[in-house]
Design a protein around this nucleic acid. Structure first.
Lengths: 215, 215
DNA sequence: GGCGGCAATATTGTCAACAATCTTGCTGAC
DNA sequence: GTCAGCAAGATTGTTGACAATATTGCCGCC
């Protein structure tokens, strides 16, 4: 296992965790010391992270953490709406009996989490549900793109799920997705998924003036 | 302007032109000599191309030109169907009078190219139309993703447009897109675009047994 | 006091050499 | 004749040093 992969994943999770502020300059020598790697390794890791859209790379001017504006977050989520709609449809076509049982259980656990006010748990299950649906659809290209987009959004997503009243809105949407996929109803699954992600777009749009979404 | 960008674009166009066969190993020292750059520059260019999905990078085993199977081409086009549908809808909402005139002229030129049997010209205009619609929609994220996917598909696209009878099918589809966007009909534009790209998916799927699409 | 230009510093870009790893072809035993 | 083990060659991975470029702070001029 080469250093490169290790450092890259470390750097990625550090950025996703918010260890570096948006627009903060990432200086190669600093990172090199911080991660105990040479500048070469850091540099290559940065190039790959730039391709993932996590950092911004300007020639001769180094790397910065890429700042995702609310407008960009909306765009990203709009793409997710289209692509996840396709994925949900495909999942409804291919789902097996065993996967149906798993989805139903997942739905029940999401309901329970909301009922007990465990927001973080619900947020996590939310991610699991989407990822499970992708898995069922078996669409490698779609999965790759959605995961890439999610990577750029982590901070916004996190804040969104903590908005008061948000789970009350999104839980029925999630359950509708589960129902449609389990009913092997492609049309309905696509519709349900589009409706759900569409409501995320709507919620994001209300944050336009930014700022007051933190905390 | 740094060497890196120059070499990267050169390498990219070389791969897109088919100068290197799929699965062919790209040996760093060879490329370095070929492009008159150092291995360092080549290596970084390869990393960036890998991020674009043009080459495959295996640790300690170097880079190969990534081979896109027909199945993968279908997946990629399915994503394009979803995302370009969104783009067409947005374009129909935002199109200006001047852009409408441009689109109509473009449509007329496509008709003329097909009428005169100029397939290459038609194929080129095809690309211009899609790109123009993206521009009108002003959706940066969608554009980025579509362009990334197109980069991985260039060879398949090229072959597709040379299939006998293909223009006869796709020209009306393209004109329907132009009509719907110019009529400022978002629903219709999305439907027309989805229908068009869907027909591309269908055509690709018939090439399943591969091989006989070359030439 | 403000502003343009210059020098000093910080940072990125590139290189050539060396180390680590993989691949390939040979050798010899069974 | 075949296969395991080994050695030689090829290729990638990494390093430290140096060059090129950008940024910053200072100085003198207006």
């Amino acid at each position: 296992m080469s250093d490169l992969d290790e450092v890259r994943t470390q750097l990625r999770t550090a950025i996703l965790r918010g260890s570096y502020a948006p627009r903060q300059r990432l200086i190669e020598t600093e990172l090199a010391e911080q991660y105990g790697a040479s500048r070469f390794v850091i540099r290559n890791a940065l190039i790959q992270l730039a391709a993932d859209g996590l950092v911004e790379l300007q020639p001769n001017r180094g790397a910065r953490v890429r700042e995702i504006s609310v407008a960009e977050a909306v765009e990203i989520t709009e793409i997710r709406q289209a692509v996840e709609g396709l994925v949900a449809r495909r999942a409804a076509e291919l789902v097996t009996d065993q996967q149906i049982a798993e989805l139903r259980e997942l739905g029940a656990r999401m309901e329970a989490a909301v009922a007990q006010g465990e927001l973080l748990r619900y947020s996590e299950l939310n991610g699991v549900l989407h990822s499970r649906v992708r898995e069922i659809a078996g669409h490698a290209t779609a999965s790759r793109i959605i995961e890439q987009l999610n990577g750029q959004m982590v901070r916004h997503q996190f804040q969104l799920s903590l908005l008061p009243g948000r789970p009350t809105v999104s839980l029925p949407e999630h359950l509708a997705i589960v129902d449609a996929v389990c009913a092997r109803d492609p049309e309905g699954a696509e519709r349900a998924m589009r409706a759900h992600v569409g409501s995320v777009v709507g919620t994001l749009a209300t944050l336009d003036t930014s700022g007051h979404l933190a905390k």
